[in-house]
């Protein structure tokens, strides 16, 4: 199960000189189990902040966030997270990175290793089992980061522009792989992106946000059949609609 409920969440960032920005203003939304939701919006709209609040790394000034009815107070292994920056521990080999989470839960190394091989296979990096992160390309690093997040068997996977730093080809391949993983593992994915193309290809629901104050402007249900064709007419129509809406935001 992975139902996320965001209730009246506000988050204000105060700078030293008493100016404050309202990153999130009374945001409420619900995400159903096994949904793939993309958050998109102009920079500063609070999409990353919302994701961090759901992860527990940040706390809302007002409002609450629930996962399956349980209030979220701190980070926990029921929510995996993949960061935009490369976050693999550079002092650990690929396999040791993947078993880090399970080991923190107190699972024995032998059992954790057995499970980890499964996730390594899921992201197709078996031959890099004992490599160190510096030996991997950007795309491989993010694959391992996904495997590491999945190793805790979370019900929700939070992804903060995970493919933002990758080149276009690798990005397309990883999007495809992520969809396969999502279908195989039956988890909820919350995905922050700034790419309309990415959102239209991946999401069940696209959450359009606007900036200053950060609010949810519109939730678009994407009912394009899967597997999706990036260049189909329907996809293009949807893309245009989102782009226009974003443009209005930026010129506002």
């Amino acid at each position: 199960m992975g139902k996320v409920k965001v209730v009246n969440v506000s988050r204000k960032f105060t700078k030293d000189n008493d100016t404050s920005t309202l990153a999130l203003d009374n945001v409420s939304m619900e995400v159903g189990d096994e949904d793939f939701v993309c958050f998109i919006g102009p920079s500063g709209c609070g999409k990353t902040t919302l994701l961090r609040i759901i992860s527990g790394l940040d706390k809302p000034d007002e409002g609450e966030v629930y996962l399956d009815g349980k209030k979220i107070e701190s980070p926990g292994p029921d929510r995996g997270m993949v960061f935009q920056e490369y976050s693999l521990f550079p002092w650990k080999s690929v396999i040791d990175n993947i078993i880090f989470g399970p080991q923190m839960q107190g699972i024995k190394k032998k059992d954790a290793l057995k499970d980890a091989e499964k996730y390594l296979k899921l992201v197709g990096l078996q031959q890099f089992r004992d490599s160190y992160p510096y030996e991997l390309s950007g795309g491989m690093k993010q694959r391992v980061a996904i495997a590491r997040a999945l190793a805790n068997e979370p019900s929700v996977l939070l992804m903060d522009e995970p493919f933002g730093a990758l080149d276009a080809q690798t990005r397309n391949i990883l999007q495809q792989e992520l969809l396969e993983i999502w279908q195989k593992k039956n988890i909820t994915i919350l995905f922050v992106t700034h790419s309309v193309d990415e959102a239209v290809f991946l999401a069940d629901k696209i959450v359009l946000m606007s900036a200053r104050p950060g609010i949810i402007k519109e939730i678009i249900h994407v009912d394009l059949p899967r597997p999706r064709d990036r260049t189909s007419l329907e996809a293009n129509v949807l893309r245009e609609r989102i782009l226009k809406s974003l443009l209005k935001e930026q010129t506002r």
Binding site: G56, S87, F89, M104, N152
Partner: peptide, 17 residues
């Protein structure tokens, strides 16, 4: 910060850990 946060979301939460 990213390593500390990555560790936190993986369940490594106390200062000691």
């Amino acid at each position: 910060r990213v390593y500390v946060e990555a560790a936190k979301v993986l369940g490594c939460n106390t200062d000691r850990e």
